[in-house]
């Protein structure tokens, strides 16, 4: 240790060079962390490669007429009617959003604008628990409780799964997602704006509708986009409660059972015979995965842009 006097007296380069051991250690830590970050990038790249390479075989070899305008989705017989899956995905996602958007936004508005701190302290953890429920559990819940107790009362059959049942289940699954992103967006609206509104004689509801929601709108849209993306990709709930096993006839009624893109993939990859069937059955799985991947990637990119706009504003 040098005394302060000597430091003041004459400053040498050595005094400022620092300990070489610490510098080396710091560099090592930096490299290890970089490798950890690199692994996730490499894995992502591998996933995309696997998806594209198999999907490419399908796209090269498939008889494209079998992918459009067929009876339904029968991959083990070489019938890959994409509209069947797209319609089912659309229905479940739409129903999920009809459930999740009002419930999620409502919860967010309550938490952010109305809840007393004590209520908030109870409700927020419950929402977070809901977010942590494994989707397989929600699948059972949809099949065993939602189907007989809800779907049966709105025109569906209680005894089996359907797109409606699956859609409601997925909706419940995405409520916490919508609530949490929306609440973040509303919390980012400065308190001073709420005070300005209250100071002008606005009630809480007016302040929420006229000041907070407009200021948070990009975050609210982002929460919906992220939720749509999550609903499109949700597998287990739809697989269990969607009312179809490994093949589906094309149907436009949400009361029927069908396969969405991810549940078609899951059903194809499960079972004792694994993926056995016509030549391209295995590859069809990757093709559907690619379509799904591109759809959700696009949605996430759009959603990210909205989220970033929120960040820029305040």
């Amino acid at each position: 240790m040098e005394t302060p006097d000597s430091v003041r007296g004459s400053l040498s380069l050595a005094a400022l060079a620092g300990s070489p051991r610490r510098v080396r250690k710091e560099r090592l830590i930096s490299r290890v962390m970089f490798c950890a970050a690199l692994v996730s990038v490499v894995v992502s790249a591998l996933i995309i490669y696997a998806l594209f390479s198999e999907a490419w075989i399908f796209m090269r070899d498939v008889d494209w007429s079998s992918t459009w305008g067929e009876l339904g989705w029968f991959p083990r017989r070489g019938i890959y009617d994409m509209p069947t899956l797209l319609v089912a995905s659309l229905w479940t996602t739409l129903i999920a959003m009809i459930v999740a958007a009002p419930l999620g936004m409502g919860a967010a508005i309550y938490l952010s604008e109305y809840a007393r701190p004590t209520h908030r302290a109870i409700l927020k953890p419950i929402l977070e628990i809901l977010a942590g429920i494994p989707s397989v559990v929600l699948g059972f819940f949809a099949l065993l409780w939602l189907a007989p107790n809800v779907v049966a009362h709105i025109g569906g059959e209680g005894g089996r799964g359907s797109m409606l049942t699956a859609g409601i289940g997925v909706g419940i699954l995405t409520v916490p997602l919508v609530a949490s992103i929306s609440e973040d967006a509303m919390a980012a609206v400065p308190k001073s704006l709420r005070e300005a509104s209250a100071g002008l004689g606005a009630r809480n509801a007016v302040t929420t509708v006229r000041v907070v929601l407009p200021a948070a709108v990009s975050g609210l849209v982002a929460s919906l986009i992220v939720a749509v993306s999550r609903a499109l990709g949700e597998t287990m709930v739809v697989f269990m409660a969607g009312g179809a096993a490994d093949a589906a006839i094309r149907t436009y009624s949400p009361y029927d059972g069908s396969l969405t893109m991810p549940s078609a993939m899951a059903s194809l990859a499960s079972g004792t015979d694994q993926v056995v069937g016509e030549g391209l059955t295995f590859q069809s799985l990757f093709f559907v995965g690619l379509v799904l991947f591109l759809l959700t990637l696009g949605l996430n990119l759009v959603g990210d842009r909205f989220v970033n706009r929120v960040r820029e504003q305040y």
């Binding site: 001073s192 704006l193 005070e195 300005a196 100071g199 002008l200 407009p214």
Partner: peptide, 11 residues
């Protein structure tokens, strides 16, 4: 009516 410490116009 009230005017606050920092100008807080609505966006």
């Amino acid at each position: 009516g009230m005017v606050f410490q920092k100008p807080n116009p609505f966006p």
